Amino acid sequence: MKCTKSTKEKRNAAIRNGLIALAGMGAAFGSGALAQTPPVAPTGSAVPAFGVLVGRWARTEGPYVINISGVDENGKLDASYANPRPLPFHTAEVTRDGNALKLFFELRAAGYGGSTYTLKYDAASDSLRGVYDQVVVMQKFDVVFNRTK
C-alpha cells in the first residue's frame, strides 16, 4: 500500500505526540526528585517576622513582665524581665520551628538559679505560651503572656 504524503505526516505526528506523552508521564511518575519535592506552603501559614515580638508582655497571673525592645536577624532578643522589680535575662533568644517562633529565656539572678521560660508565639491570640521551669523549687508551670498596650 502506497502512503501519501499526508498519511505519512499524520503517522509521524501521532508518533511524535505519543513520545511526548510518554516523556511527560516519565517525568511525572519516574522521577524521584519530583515525587520528593515538598508542597508549597500557603501564604497564610508563613512564619511571622521576629519583629512581631517587640513589645511588653504581661503574664496572666502575677506581676511578671517580659519587655522585648529589639531582636536581631540571628534571633538574639534585647529583653528584660520584671517580677515586679527589673531583672536581667542571662539568655534571651528566638528561633524558627517550622511555622512557629520559639522563645527561650534564662534567669540566673538570685533566687532563680537558671530557671527558664520556653515559649511559642501564638499569632491568633497575640500571646506567648509555654512553660516556666522554676529550677530552684523544681516545679514547672504552664504560662501565658499577653501583649499589653
Rank of each mutant, 00 (worst) to 15 (best):
E9R: 14
K5Q: 09
G62V: 14
R11A: 12
G18H: 13
Y112M: 12
N83M: 15
S115L: 04
F105R: 07
P42E: 13
A92P: 01
A46P: 06
R129L: 11
A13F: 08
G55R: 02
P48V: 06
R11W: 13
F141D: 01
S127E: 00
K5C: 06
D72E: 08
I20E: 10
R56Y: 07
L19W: 02
P63D: 10
L22Y: 02
A28F: 04
P48I: 10
R56M: 12
A109W: 01
K5D: 02
D133H: 08
P86C: 10
G98C: 11
P38A: 09
R11N: 05
N67A: 11
A13I: 07
T37V: 11
R56E: 15
D97I: 01
A79D: 04
D133S: 13
D126Q: 10
A41E: 07
N67P: 09
G130Q: 10
V52I: 09
E106G: 02
Y112E: 12
S45K: 07
A13W: 04
W57A: 09
T148C: 07
Y132K: 03
S115Y: 08
Y64R: 06
A33N: 11
G55W: 05
N99D: 12
R59S: 15
V54I: 12
F104H: 03
E9L: 07
M1D: 04
G26R: 08
G44A: 11
S31A: 10
F104Y: 02
E73C: 06
A35Q: 14
V144Y: 05
D78S: 10
D122R: 13
D122M: 08
T37R: 13
L22V: 03
G32D: 05
F29T: 14
L103P: 05
G114A: 04
V94N: 03
